[in-house]
């Protein structure tokens, strides 16, 4: 039987009696279903505007042009304002989440201090509370701190939402570094902070990348908090602007422009995922299954 010739792998109930051809056909059909929405939007975004909103819809463009992307500049303060708003927010979130998670992960993994377990649980327990249920007071707190309607204030909230995952990942990363390395560095007269900076940083880099990817994607994609905290058009993030385009806030829906905007929002996520897939999936399974 063909089954005995199968490579010994970790595949589930091991033997497959169905023809691989049949399986490939199923896989390909599913792949088409999963890909067509993104691919079709991508194709539409480079059609001439009239074709992008043709009824009935067409698939292949008669010619390729970038008029739809140019038209994105007609909305509000122009698309680049919102792309840079999203980008600035995401970068502050990435830096903040990585720094805070790394420091805390190191502290929790390597030191004993009063209230250690309580504070670790405190940070992790926020995972069980949906952030949607604390947005109302957060809005008031940000207003008090004069941070409402600022990208910085939004980033602070995003950083906090990233902390349970980030601290958990980083604590595990540090805990898996052999203690001998630190002891050697200590003998050489390293202080705790410079050890973290000089020795440990390189060793926990995979964890840092994982935390960074999640911080970026969650910040770039977040919708509800941005909708509530950002009430001035100039401070909208990209998803909020796109919703205004769709809702006819700027007049009738321009489908071509909407599709171009969607691609601007989708492409960074896809690129980051494809380039750093290993860290992304590792974070998902490692963080979730043992969390």
């Amino acid at each position: 039987m063909a089954t005995t010739a199968q490579p010994r792998s970790n595949s589930a109930p091991v033997a497959i009696r169905w023809q691989p051809v049949l399986i490939y056909i199923v896989c390909i059909v599913l792949a088409i279903l999963f890909l067509f929405p993104i691919v079709w939007t991508g194709i539409n975004s480079v059609k001439p505007p009239a074709e992008a909103s043709a009824s009935p819809p067409t698939f292949l463009p008669s010619r390729i042009e970038f008029e739809n992307y140019a038209k994105l500049n007609n909305y509000g303060k122009g698309v680049w304002t919102y792309v840079s708003n999203s980008l600035v927010t995401a970068l502050i979130t990435v830096v903040g989440s990585v720094v805070l998670s790394t420091l805390a992960g190191y502290g929790f993994a390597r030191f004993n201090f009063p209230m250690k377990n309580v504070s670790f649980l405190l940070i992790l327990a926020t995972l069980m509370i949906p952030f949607q249920s604390i947005l109302i007071p957060l809005f008031l707190i940000l207003t008090q701190l004069r941070l409402q309607n600022t990208l910085f204030g939004l980033s602070l909230v995003y950083i906090t939402f990233q902390l349970p995952f980030g601290v958990f990942i980083m604590r595990n990363s540090f805990a898996s570094v052999p203690r001998e390395i630190e002891e050697a560095a200590l003998l050489d007269g390293c202080s705790a902070l410079s050890m973290l900076y000089r020795v440990m940083f390189a060793l926990v880099r995979p964890g840092i990348i994982t935390v960074g990817i999640y911080a970026f994607l969650n910040s770039w994609n977040e919708f509800l908090a941005a909708l509530i905290f950002m009430t001035k058009e100039a401070n909208f993030t990209l998803p909020i602007l796109l919703t205004s385009v769709r809702s006819g806030y700027y007049g009738a829906i321009d489908w071509g422009a909407l599709q171009a905007g969607l691609m601007v929002s989708i492409i960074p996520c896809v690129l980051i995922f494809l380039l750093l897939q290993r860290y992304y999936v590792g974070g998902l399974t490692g963080g979730a299954l043992k969390g």
Partner: peptide, 14 residues
């Protein structure tokens, strides 16, 4: 208190 020093920013944010 070294560990607390490291964990403090995350605790304050939370």
């Amino acid at each position: 208190y070294t560990g607390l020093f490291f964990a403090l920013p995350a605790i304050i944010f939370t």
